[in-house]
Amino acid sequence: MKKIVILTATRAEYGLLSPIIKKLNKEPEIDARVVATGAHLSPEFGMTVNEIKKDGIAIDKEIDILLNSDTPVAISKTMGLAMIGFADYFSECMPDAIMVLGDRYETLAVCVAALNAQIPIIHLHGGEATEGSVDEALRNAITKLSYLHFTSTDEYRNRVIQMGEAPERVFCVGALGVENALHTSFLSKAKLENSLKCHLGDKIAILTFHPVTLEENTAGIQISEIINAIIQHPEITFICTKANADVGGRIINEQLKICSDEFENVVLFDSLGMQRYMSMLAIADFVIGNSSSGIIEVPSFKIPTINIGDRQKGRIQASSVINCEPNKNDILEAIDKALSSEFKKKVKMSCNPYGDGNTSNKIVEITKKFLLENMLQVHKKFYDIK
């Protein structure tokens, strides 16, 4: 039997990985171990490890690494704690591979520990561009540490190959978020209101805004501009979820908390969980902020995305995405456009460029082949493009 560790450190990451975890758990020749770390274990970020447990998924290990601060020094120390904690875990567990998703700093630290332990790394969502965020550099570093790659589009696959990864180890499988969008069982509006303990009203928007980590000290200014815009629309219920544990994230969360205490139509949650989040998308009028979800999952719901600022700059986008600057007037113009009948018609005709919703099956089958046929390695040869 082959042993594989699946790493998850955030609520969004787990939501994407959950169909893979459930399918790997059904494979008799594979021992899948889930390790929860990072924001999952923080009361400040909603102790979202409990969402994993509610799904009936066993957690092999909880590794607490997150410091109670989001300064650059604290994040570097968190990465150090991740390397120490996972070095110990890998020496105990010694898996045949580890699967990671995306571009977070704690993921990079875990991958370095895995490489030192000679554990092959399987990477999801490589090759993507987010020019306004340090995540791009982290993602590319994780790509170079990894052996097996799953990308969400052909263009991203080509980028991974361009970075020296051999084509036979790089697979375009689409985005897991699209699969969740197409296959989640949605809650009714009444059940959502009961679960969230709030009245949703006739018009609904979902707001998620993260710090733009390559910009210095802009989080407070930008979230103020967003708040000053959304309070001009008391007829819209804004369902907000907290920012990630990145530099400046706590500033965003503090200002959203103050806003939600003052305005009845602004409601803040630590986390919605995947089913409630997808159910909200099914009834929402638009999504606003700078989350990758607005670019990847939301177009499948045929609703507009208002993408604010540079965090997602460089990602492939559907025609349903409205890009705007992080200032009040631009945001108000974008909201007017998202609510216009003309743009809504355009959105209904848009296509999601991130796949057909069969991603997890492809990932599981290819991973299984590489594991069972002993095709995963740590050492690799740089692939030169002819």
Rank of each mutant, 00 (worst) to 15 (best):
A12E: 14
L16K: 09
L16F: 12
P19M: 06
I20T: 11
I20H: 02
K22R: 15
K26I: 00
V35P: 01
F45S: 01
F45W: 01
G46H: 13
M47C: 09
M47A: 08
E51D: 15
I52W: 13
A58Q: 13
K61P: 02
I65C: 05
L67Q: 07
N68Q: 15
T71W: 03
A74T: 02
F86W: 09
F86P: 00
D88M: 05
F90M: 03
E92L: 12
V100Q: 06
L101E: 02
E106S: 00
C111N: 01
A117N: 09
H125V: 14
G126E: 04
G127S: 03
G127E: 00
E128F: 02
V134W: 13
L138E: 06
A141E: 07
I142C: 05
F150G: 01
T151H: 03
T153A: 00
D154Q: 03
N158K: 02
V160I: 08
V160S: 06
M163Y: 07
E165K: 13
V173T: 03
G177M: 07
N180K: 15
S188G: 09
K189A: 13
K189Y: 07
A190F: 05
A190Q: 11
N194M: 10
L200R: 13
K203M: 04
L207I: 01
T208V: 11
T213N: 11
L214E: 06
L214F: 07
I221C: 12
S224P: 10
I230T: 06
T237V: 11
K242D: 07
A245R: 02
G248A: 06
E254R: 14
C259Y: 05
D261N: 14
D261A: 10
F263S: 08
F263L: 10
V266H: 00
V266R: 03
L268Q: 14
D270L: 04
S271T: 05
L272M: 09
L272S: 02
Q275H: 11
L281Y: 14
A282D: 14
I283A: 10
A284S: 15
F286G: 02
N290E: 12
N290S: 12
N290C: 12
S293C: 09
S293T: 12
S300G: 07
S300P: 07
I306F: 11
N307M: 02
N307V: 00
D310N: 15
K313D: 10
A318T: 14
I322A: 08
D330S: 15
I335K: 12
D336N: 14
K337Y: 09
K337V: 10
K345I: 09
K348T: 00
S350Q: 08
D356G: 12
N358K: 13
T359N: 01
K362E: 11
V364N: 14
E365T: 04
I366W: 07
L372A: 07
E373C: 13
N374V: 00
N374Y: 13
L376M: 10
H379M: 08
K380T: 04
D384L: 11
I385P: 02
I385D: 07
K386E: 15
